[in-house]
């Protein structure tokens, strides 16, 4: 178990770096907004059609935005040597990495969840789906970040790991996408959605508990050459 002060130090560093590099941190949100806007233009003004597609469109776009953000998760620290020092820390790496992933999950999920109602309204989604959309993003995006971090840890040593990351991670994203989009569709149509959200929550718990193990192992592999 790692001490409180080191966990605090990890969180402080993540938030500080995210604020200092705000333009890079907000890349994912820009992508999210722009692509949803393009869908609205591309599909046309038919409100019925757009509204029906909206939950799926928003979730697919959010998923791609997360992948975009996750690619940079360890890249900086690998390049400047900070990652070596993190791996040599005299603390349990599981908790250090967990703290870091939680901070990143928050930093990625909250902005996406905040802008999502606007995008949903723009795409003509039924208002009944809005709270569930926000909730599904807050539950599902952290799961995506945790899973994506495994891919990011494995590919950080490759200069252009982006495509490889997508290949590794996208199949694992599918279950989250299925249940998250289904929850929003059900809510928008006035059906019950509790089951889908519970499965999302279960996926989140599983990802939080297990992904730090895989991330630590993946990061270590980069130094075996």
């Amino acid at each position: 178990m790692a001490g409180k002060t080191i966990i605090k130090a990890v969180l402080r560093r993540e938030f500080l770096l995210s604020v200092r590099n705000a333009s890079a941190s907000l890349n994912g949100v820009w992508f999210f907004v722009l692509v949803c806007g393009l869908f609205a233009i591309g599909i046309g003004p038919d409100k019925e059609q757009l509204g029906g597609l909206a939950p799926g469109l928003i979730w697919v776009t959010a998923l791609l935005a997360v992948m975009l953000s996750v690619d940079a998760l360890f890249r900086h620290d690998y390049a400047d040597g900070s990652l070596e020092q993190l791996l040599l820390a005299a603390h349990s790496l599981y908790f250090l990495v967990l703290a870091r992933l939680m901070a990143q999950a928050l930093l990625i999920a909250v902005p996406l969840a905040l802008v999502s109602p606007l995008l949903a309204l723009m795409l003509g989604m039924k208002a009944a789906g809005l709270p569930v959309l926000i909730l599904s993003l807050l539950l599902g995006v952290p799961t995506l970040v945790m899973i994506g971090a495994i891919g990011a840890a494995l590919t950080v040593g490759f200069e252009r790991g982006g495509l490889l990351l997508a290949l590794l991670v996208l199949p694992l994203y599918v279950p989250v996408l299925i249940f998250a989009a289904a929850a929003v569709v059900s809510a928008a149509d006035g059906y019950t959605y509790a089951g889908q959200l519970m499965i999302l929550a279960a996926q989140f718990v599983l990802a939080v508990a297990l992904s730090p193990l895989a991330v630590v192992a993946g990061l270590r592999l980069n130094y075996y050459h």
Binding site: T5, I6, A9, R13, L16, L17, R20, N21, H76, D77, A79, D80, G81, S82, E84, Q85, L86, L88, A89, A90, H91
Partner: peptide
């Protein structure tokens, strides 16, 4: 080889972080 110094942090912030690890 790499200094483990983050370019967006000040020297003091970097040093405090690196010592915190051990």
């Amino acid at each position: 080889h790499a200094s483990a110094v983050n370019a967006s942090l000040t020297p003091l912030e970097n040093l405090m972080w690196l010592t915190e690890l051990t």
